[in-house]
Design a protein around this nucleic acid. Sequence first.
DNA 1: AAAAAAG
Length: 469
Amino acid sequence: MKFAEIGLSDELLRAIDESGYDEATPIQAGVIPSVLMMRDIIGIAQTGTGKTASFVLPMIDILAHGRARARMPRSLILAPTRELAAQVAENFEKYGKYHKLSMALLIGGVQMGDQVKALEKGVDVLIATPGRLMDLFERGKILLTGCNLLVIDEADRMLDMGFIPDIENICTKLPANRQTLLFSATMPAPIKRLADKFLSNPKTVEVARPASRNENIEQFLVKTSERGKRDTLRSLIDSEKVHTAIIFCNRKTTVRELAKALQRSGYSAGEIQGDMDQSSRTAELDRFKNGTINILVASDVAARGLDVKGVSHVFNFDAPWHPDDYVHRIGRTGRAGAQGRAFTLVTPSDDEAIDSIQKLTGYKIPVHGVEAAAAETAAAAPSEAEEKPRRGRSERGGRGRGASKPDKVAAEPVDEPKAAPAKAPRPRDDRKSAATPKPAPAPRRDDQDGPDDGWNGPMPGFLSVGFGS
DNA sequence: AAAAAAG
């Protein structure tokens, strides 16, 4: 469905057009008309499906008329992390450029002064993380009685982070006859209860089944050892022709150490994790988005919802403890129709985690063959001083259970690589390693995602075998 | 087991 047929204003259509969009995604086609008719919505979708625009666009038109009063925001969007809140704000700026809507972004980690000032002037759109919102509310800086539109974004993540009581609290402070939109990638029971309690006669729009496999993402397990992880990762990065990658670790300390190690090895890498102050977090994310760095080492702060265009690879340096996190992490690639590859380093102690991931997704992730061998070589002759070889040790995972069960064979062929558009060339990465010259990064569009935002996926020239379970 | 979010 075309945006022009969806019932949006001309000014908005112009902004959409200038952002390079024409066709609405399924979630947008399902949600936007109903929001314009003032219905409550339950949207079951992950980001990358165009979910954010599905509420931002109609909100801009709904809020186009009328005027905000001091301390009385007209609408409220709740997001679980600061980065996601900022991302929503960027969308309002992009699509609202022909409207004069006022907006405030209320997130922690930054000075309150500007936020309070904006509130005093009156805002049409308030975008907030729960903590800072509650804080300012309790200080009497916000009145929610005039807030007729509420969006709860990434509700399942809010649940994971223990925000549900806050959300309920906030809901009771809004007028009862408001419009409420709730978005969630999955629908666990507590979220259903929340929806039953605070939405009236909602329309449910579902575009991707939770934990269903995104066919655009090729997944692999890479067997390694605790000690061999860094070398395994480096050889993977080198052999994979990485354009842009996010590397997930389970711990903030691991994030920091790995980012440093990669920098020392000459990679153009940065980090993002919750112990960094907000300005560094934002700065690192910007460097990644604008191509100054092409590798971002991250904690799960970046696992969900983060929308960076054209991420070609996700590496799980650590297998995530919770299977849900796996789904969210790999979802940072293969977005908006592009192809992506996701590699998870597994050590023998990760068997359980991998089991539960495979159970959740119903997909047996093939083992990547070549790198496992490379890891053993690497472990026997580490390139970095801190990685002492430890000999005479079995690198075999799975306690031999699955080793004799090579059921799945060849990796699926990569789909026809899409030609990348030749505009906005990214800065080159500056790896110093001359032995393995990096391919020039594909050009990248920074303004939006889109199906043409691809890169040339390498054809895997190896066999994969099944992982024992 | 960790991370995130208020400070």
